[in-house]
Computed example of a mutant assay.
Amino acid sequence: MTNVTRLRHALPLSSDINKAVVDLDTAIAKAIDVAKAAGLPQGLIVAELHGHAHAQTHVMVKK
């Protein structure tokens, strides 16, 4: 896991990283709003987010 950066060691974060985090958060929030408007059950939305978080954690640990 040499490619993983612990944020507490990288503080303060660069403006590029801050923008990327804000953009990611905004995109996720918009996608959730669209899914809710389409009638997806909240549990399915949560399951999708949890599944992606699990998969990304696996990718980080595997490297």
Rank of each mutant, 00 (worst) to 15 (best):
M60R: 10
I28G: 01
A35G: 05
D25A: 11
R8E: 10
L7D: 10
Q42R: 12
A38Y: 10
V59S: 09
V34N: 08
Q42D: 06
A47D: 15
N18S: 06
S15Y: 06
P41A: 12
K36N: 01
N3D: 15
V22H: 09
A27H: 06
G51I: 03
H58T: 07
T2P: 03
K30L: 10
D33Q: 15
A31W: 01
L44I: 04
Q56R: 12
I45K: 02
M1A: 13
A35Q: 11
S15F: 05
K30N: 12
L44M: 08
D33W: 03
N3E: 13
R8G: 00
K30I: 01
E48W: 04
V22A: 14
G43E: 15
H50R: 15
V61W: 10
R8S: 07
A38H: 10
P41S: 10
D25H: 06
V59T: 10
L7Y: 05
D25Y: 03
T26H: 05
V22C: 02
A37L: 04
D25T: 14
L11T: 06
A20P: 02
A35S: 14
A31P: 00
K36E: 07
E48F: 08
A10N: 07
K36L: 13
L13P: 01
T26M: 08
V4S: 06
L40Q: 11
H54N: 13
A53Y: 11
D25F: 11
V4Y: 15
A37G: 06
V46S: 11
L49Y: 07
M1W: 08
T57H: 06
L13R: 00
